[in-house]
């Protein structure tokens, strides 16, 4: 099995609303994929189904060849420790330092007691490694800064560093650029794609910014109302397909107004 993620007819419902509606999708190992679509198109839900945090109401999710629904708690935890996630809110602990936040990235592999030790007195080897990672993402000097003292862009870097320290086989990032200015957004996306190539992990990013997605990703998946509208390389797509994606339907316009 070489597929990192395999989704077969996945449907996730919230009440009567199908946030993800009968999606089938395969992401190969080492692939770089961008999910694009307007807000409410199901990008976040799709990512939560892929990182196993949301069990689909119908269909099956396989990650690295393992059927998620067949795993017991321990196996599921082990699988999750191989998938890094950067949620939209980043999920950082603001009153801990960058170092402390990043070292917790490996908590899934290390267990409870070791994590407490890591927080209170991190090993020298870890500190050196984390410093190197923070250097790579551009904020090496922020090793001992509290996350609450960092800017939005710097916080994002901390979240990326935590994902890297996890040494994942795949990284899922949900709208990683929604809270920073365009120049920084471009830098962050470039960084994620470079790292994915460099380290060799699978990368799936949800984006509403089409230009960035076209520039950096070899494969784009368009989502609308929870369904896949297109799934192709950027040069195979026409401009009208993108504008269709963002054109509001009548009932959407009413609810958005």
């Amino acid at each position: 099995m070489s597929a990192a993620f395999q989704l077969d007819g996945v449907t996730c419902r919230f009440g009567s609303l199908a946030a993800v509606d009968d999606v089938s999708l395969t992401v190969e190992d080492g692939e770089q994929v961008a999910f694009i679509g307007p807000s409410g198109s199901g990008k976040t839900t799709l990512i939560r189904a892929m990182n196993t945090m949301l069990a689909p109401d119908a269909g099956a999710v396989s990650v690295f060849g393992q059927d998620v629904s067949s795993l017991d708690t321990g196996e599921l935890r082990r699988l999750r420790s191989e998938i890094a996630t950067i949620p939209q809110h980043l999920g950082l602990v603001p009153n801990l330092t960058a170092l402390q936040n990043v070292v917790l990235g490996r908590g899934g592999q290390r267990g409870t007691l070791r994590s407490i030790r890591d927080l209170l007195m991190p090993s020298r080897a870890d500190v050196l490694e984390i410093h190197e990672i923070l250097d790579r993402v551009g904020i090496g000097e922020k090793l001992y800064s509290r996350v609450s003292d960092l800017s939005g862009g710097q916080r994002q870097r901390v979240a990326i560093a935590r994902a890297l320290f996890q040494e994942p086989k795949a990284l899922l990032a949900d709208e990683p650029v929604s809270s920073v200015d365009p120049a920084r957004a471009r830098d962050s996306i470039r960084l994620l794609v470079e790292l994915s190539t460099e380290v060799g992990f699978t990368l799936c990013v949800s984006l509403h910014h089409i230009e960035l997605a076209k520039e950096f990703f070899p494969r784009l998946v368009g989502l609308r109302s929870g369904s896949v509208v297109f799934d192709a390389a950027p040069d195979q797509l026409e401009g009208s397909q993108f504008s269709d994606l963002y054109e509001l339907e009548d009932h959407e316009m009413m609810t958005d107004a």
């Binding site: 999750r80 999920g91 899934g108």
Partner: peptide, 12 residues
């Protein structure tokens, strides 16, 4: 938020 993330990366 943070707890949700740690759960997602395999923390107990």
């Amino acid at each position: 938020d943070a707890a949700e993330l740690f759960k997602a990366i395999g923390h107990r």
